[in-house]
Design a protein around this nucleic acid. Structure first.
Lengths: 205, 205
DNA sequence: GTCTATATTTCGATAGAC
DNA sequence: GTCTATCGAAATATAGAC
């Protein structure tokens, strides 16, 4: 019953296809498309190279699957929150900050992976992200216009997202210089869950 | 005389070595190390592959030269400004914002290039960036401590840098979605030169 | 479906003529 | 110094036995 269902979700009992996908998620997000070798993925999955091609035909094909997932993970989570009609501007800010930082703590490589792959191959992402519809015409933006007319929502978003995302993009620097270790970083990010909303609200005064 | 000197600086009259370096700057920063082929660089320079190896021996060697330049360009510019003993906290914030954004407008690919290469190969950058000495013990941090005791300078830096750098990291998304074109982006960044200092000063109240 | 062996292509690097 | 032609390794992809 429940036990059986859970058991199917453990690593060992994944299907071969899922083992390869999971390995691809790890290796692609850590090294990027170009630096990833198909052998790395097969090795990470504990399988051989032929199975990789049996299930996914090519490196490119599997990458597209993973990339779509990751873009979704990074962006789509914010759109519903921006369009929740049942809470205030302040509540939206609080909720998004706390939950987005938590998500990033679980997926620290996600932003730099997605953003650098988009840079490397912009053509591929024509319609993947629909910025206009869900962000620039969101309920959040309407509430913002009522509150404070003289602020460009794009400027606010750039700062809001920048404050949340930048620490994760620059994390490798802190780690290599030894300035901030793993535990200290987690601590800083937990503090930011309160700091960022406080700062954003100041900008709305 | 002057005309002759200027002429030596035009593309056509560069030495073969400089042509290759310049081509490498363009291709490496645009595609990253792994996705760059030595042939791409030779093509970009309008030369053949053998010359590449004649001057630089290997892809790795030339990359290290370019990477060192780019890390320098991205970071070292801020350290002196943070340590200027002759101006106030506010003046430092104003100056850094205006000049850093201008530099980024001229080198929009710089941050994502450097940050993603550091992620891909953290070992290489053990001592390249000296965060502790020049940033965390800077004159800026001393002035900050006098002004506002209850703020962690790291938190402020993360927000300050994030607000400046993030727009450039996420620029490819705006471009591919068509939400913000080249001219509009420039306009937004010019506005940010005033917005960011205003916001940072609010955080110090 | 899975594996070993191998084909095919790409890419970094070199040899050798001019 | 510069170029054409190639080598040799590495990486993607496939063939074919089990």
């Amino acid at each position: 019953m429940m036990a059986v269902i859970n058991e199917q979700l453990t690593k060992e009992n994944l299907s071969t296809e899922e083992k390869l996908k999971e390995a691809a998620r790890i290796v692609f997000t850590k090294k990027g498309y170009a630096a990833t070798k198909t052998r790395d993925i097969a090795d990470e999955a504990g399988l051989n190279l032929a199975l990789f091609h049996y299930y996914f035909r090519s490196k490119e094909k599997l990458f597209e699957i993973i990339m779509m997932e990751k873009v979704q993970q990074l962006f789509s989570f914010i759109a519903p929150a921006l369009n929740n009609p049942d809470n205030t501007l302040e509540e939206k800010i609080d909720w998004i900050t706390a939950n987005y930082i938590d998500m990033l703590l679980k997926n620290p490589d996600l932003p730099i992976f997605v953003l650098s792959e988009i840079r490397n191959n912009p053509e591929r992402f024509g319609k993947t992200v629909q910025l206009n519809t869900y962000v620039l015409k969101s309920h959040f933006v309407k509430q913002l216009a009522e509150r404070k007319k003289d602020i460009n929502p794009i400027q606010l978003f750039l700062s809001f997202l920048g404050m949340m995302v930048f620490p994760f993009i620059s994390k490798p620097i802190f780690e290599t210089t030894g300035a901030v270790n793993e535990a200290a970083f987690k601590q800083l990010m937990d503090e930011r869950k309160l700091l960022i909303p406080k700062w954003i609200k100041m900008m709305l005064e």
